[in-house]
Computed example of a mutant assay.
Amino acid sequence: MNTTFLFIGGPEIFVILLIVVMLFGADKIPEIARGLGKGMRQIKDATNDIKKEINESAQKQGLDTEFIEDINKEVNQVKDNIDDLTGPIKRNM
């Protein structure tokens, strides 16, 4: 199974991780991972807030909200992808 993220394959990710370890040291990696995790959580929360405001606004205006279900599906797919990426980080902490 060959997974790519932003057109980066496994060997490239390994080289990037090696460079990160060389630059920051192994003791800083958990701190960096926590910072990334917090950033991802903030993005997720902001996305949920925006989605909630859009839904409330559309309902107040009496707009057809069927398209919101499609947007929700897309947002949930992005959340799942983010969870898939951050899953190994969360398990190691």
Rank of each mutant, 00 (worst) to 15 (best):
T4R: 15
T4D: 13
F5I: 15
L6I: 08
L6T: 02
F7Q: 11
F7S: 13
P11N: 08
E12K: 07
E12S: 05
E12A: 09
E12L: 13
I13L: 11
I19K: 10
I19S: 05
I19G: 04
V20R: 12
V20Y: 10
V21T: 04
M22I: 13
F24D: 02
G25W: 14
G25C: 12
D27V: 06
P30H: 06
A33S: 12
R34Y: 07
G35P: 15
G35N: 14
L36F: 09
G39R: 01
Q42Y: 12
I43F: 07
K44Y: 06
A46C: 02
A46M: 04
D49T: 01
I50A: 14
I50T: 14
E53Q: 15
N55Q: 10
N55I: 03
N55A: 06
E56D: 12
Q59G: 01
T65I: 11
E69L: 03
D70G: 09
N72Q: 08
N72E: 15
V78T: 01
V78Q: 03
V78H: 04
K79C: 04
K79E: 07
D80N: 08
I82E: 00
I82F: 01
D84M: 12
D84N: 04
L85P: 00
L85V: 09
T86P: 00
G87D: 13
K90L: 11
M93T: 01
